[in-house]
Design a protein around this nucleic acid. Sequence first.
DNA 1: TTTCCTATTAATTTCCAAATTCATTTAACT
DNA 2: AGTTAAATGAATTTGGAAATTAATAGGAAA
Lengths: 248, 248
Amino acid sequence: MDEHRPFADSRNGAKSPSTTVASSVYVKMRLDILTGDLRPGEKLRSEFLRGRYNAGISPVREALNRLSTERLVCREDQRGFHVAGVSKAGLVELTKTRCWIEEIAIRESIEWGDDAWEEQIVLSFHRLSRTPRSSEDLTYAFNAKWEGLHRDFHNAIIACCGSHWLLGFCEQLVDQADRYRQLAAAVSYPKRNERNEHKDLMEATLSRDADRAVAIQCAHIRKTADIVLEANLSFLPDDIDLADPSRC
Amino acid sequence: MDEHRPFADSRNGAKSPSTTVASSVYVKMRLDILTGDLRPGEKLRSEFLRGRYNAGISPVREALNRLSTERLVCREDQRGFHVAGVSKAGLVELTKTRCWIEEIAIRESIEWGDDAWEEQIVLSFHRLSRTPRSSEDLTYAFNAKWEGLHRDFHNAIIACCGSHWLLGFCEQLVDQADRYRQLAAAVSYPKRNERNEHKDLMEATLSRDADRAVAIQCAHIRKTADIVLEANLSFLPDDIDLADPSRC
DNA sequence: TTTCCTATTAATTTCCAAATTCATTTAACT
DNA sequence: AGTTAAATGAATTTGGAAATTAATAGGAAA
C-alpha cells in the first residue's frame, strides 16, 4: 500500500482508471521475472512476496495466478508457485517458435502497413538509437528505458499484421526470450552492434522487402539465442529436469 | 466443497496430485464459457459465481484471474469481470490466425512425426468416428465425449510439431473458436458431414502430403467460421463495441 | 432540460485467521 | 539397516468480514 492511487482525478468526466494492488503486484513481479531479479526456478512463497511487494496475500496470489497462465510462473496445486525454469533445450524451442511466428507477423504487416505505420517505425528507431543499451558506461546494467524502446521498435514493425492474437503471441515469446537475454546480457556486453541490426531491419521493412526483413529478424533472434547458448552458463541446464517442479 | 479429493491415494510413493478448489472452479468455469453456458459479454459477479460453483470468494477470483490472461474472461480493475465478447470481425481475425498457426504446426508435425504419431492419429480418428456429434438423435445437444475426442484427433495431428508454444497457441485459438462453434451448433446441425472432412485430413497427413493436409485443415476451419457468419445470429455484433466493457 | 453535487446502495478488492495439505523428523517395528 | 507409521512444523489454500471503490438515485442550481 505505497503509491496506490497516486492521483484520484475526478474533476472531468474522463474516469481515471484506478488500478488495484493485485495489478500493481502483477506488473512488478512480471518485471522482476523478466529481468531475472526473481531467478528461474526460484520458489515463490507467499510470505516472501507479501513482504517484497508490501501487499496482502490475496493480491499476491491473484498476480501469481495471472502469471501462471502466461507461463512465467509455474503452479502446482497444494505446492505453491515457482518462477518458470529455463534450459538450453527450452531456448532452442523458443527461438524456433519465435522465428515461425514473427515471420508471419512481418509479412502480413509489410503487406498491410500504411503511412502512419512507416512513420511509427522511423520514430521508434530514432528514439531507440539515441538511448544507451546499458545504463552504465563500461559494464552492463539493466536499462529500463532502452528495454521499453526496444520493444516499441519491434512492435512497430509487426503492428499492422492484422491479428491481435498474433501480436499477443509475439509478446509472450518476447517475454520469455527476455529472461534468457538478461541471463547473458552481462556476458555479451558490449560485443554486439545491435543498432546496425535494427537499422537493417527498418530499411528492409520500409522498402517492403519481406523476404529480407524476415531473414534479418530471424538472424537477430537466433544471434541473441546463440550468445546465450555459447556463454555456457553454469546455471543453465541442458534440458528441463522432469523431477524439478519448476519445469512447467 | 462437493467432490473435492475423490480419493486420497497415499499407499504408494507416487504422490497423488490432489487438486484445489480454485483449479476445480477454473476447469468448470472454463467449460461453461466454452459451451456458451456463460454467454459472451455476461457479467461475472463474485456472489453469483460463489453460488454457482459452491466455493468461497478466493478460489473464484483465482480462477477468474487465470481465465483473464487467456482472454476467455476480461477484467477491468475495480470493475470486475466479464465473459469475453464475440463479434463477426473477431471471428474473422481468429479464423485467419488459426490458419496461419495451424499451417506451421501441421507442416512441422508431418516432417517430424514417427510411427507412434501415425498410430495415435488412426486411433483417435477411429474413436471420434464412432461417437455421435450430438448427444440426442434429431436435435443438437452438446456432447462432451465427442468434443473431447474431436480435440484429441486434431491434437494428434499436430502433436509432433516440436514446440510446446505452438501447441499452446493452437489450443488457445481452438478454445476461442469453440465458443463461436457452440453459438451456431444448433443452427448448423446436422447439415455437415464432418466425418469425411476428418477422414480426408487423416489420409493426407498419413501420406505426408503437407500441402494437401494444410489445405484441408484451413478449409475445415473456414467452413466452421462461415457457418457461424452465415447463420446471421442476432446476438453477434459486426464489430466489437468499444464502449462495451466485455470488449477486452 | 441539463448539469452538477450529494447520499445511498451495490460491487469489488483486500486483509487476515482458520482449515487443510505437504514436508520433515522421530519413533517403532520387522 | 531398512521400512513403515505417527508426530511435528511449515506452507498453501480457503472463507468471510472489513475497507475501498463504483454505480445509482435524488435534488439543487444554472
